[in-house]
């Protein structure tokens, strides 16, 4: 390996994940949609609607501020939801 190649590699390592990790992250995400059988642009909106329906039974939430995304953490995929709560419903 030439010095130039070595420098290029060190440089690209700093800036970019190894391509196999990119492959894994992309695969994990695409397989979620494949397995559920829902198009990528439809899954999160559907999930959001259902979440709103369930949580609204217990508390009042800011629907516009609700944010649901997938995130890759180490070797696991996580579903991250941020749900602003306006208030809790009284049940008596």
């Amino acid at each position: 390996m030439s010095v130039l190649q070595l420098l290029q590699r060190l440089w690209s390592r700093e800036n970019e994940k190894p391509s196999k990790d990119q492959a894994k992250e992309r695969l994990r995400l695409v397989l979620v949609h494949d397995r559920v059988g829902v198009a990528p642009d439809r899954l999160l909106p559907m999930l959001k609607d259902d979440l709103i329906a369930v949580i609204s039974k217990y508390m009042e939430i800011d629907e516009a501020g609700l944010d649901v995304t997938f995130s890759q953490e180490d070797s696991q995929m996580a579903l991250v939801a941020s749900i602003p709560v306006r208030g809790v419903r009284r049940h008596f």
């Binding site: 190894p18 391509s19 196999k20 990790d21 492959a23 894994k24």
Partner: peptide, 8 residues
């Protein structure tokens, strides 16, 4: 790091 292994 350019190819997935069996573990991956």
């Amino acid at each position: 790091g350019d190819m997935m292994t069996m573990d991956d």
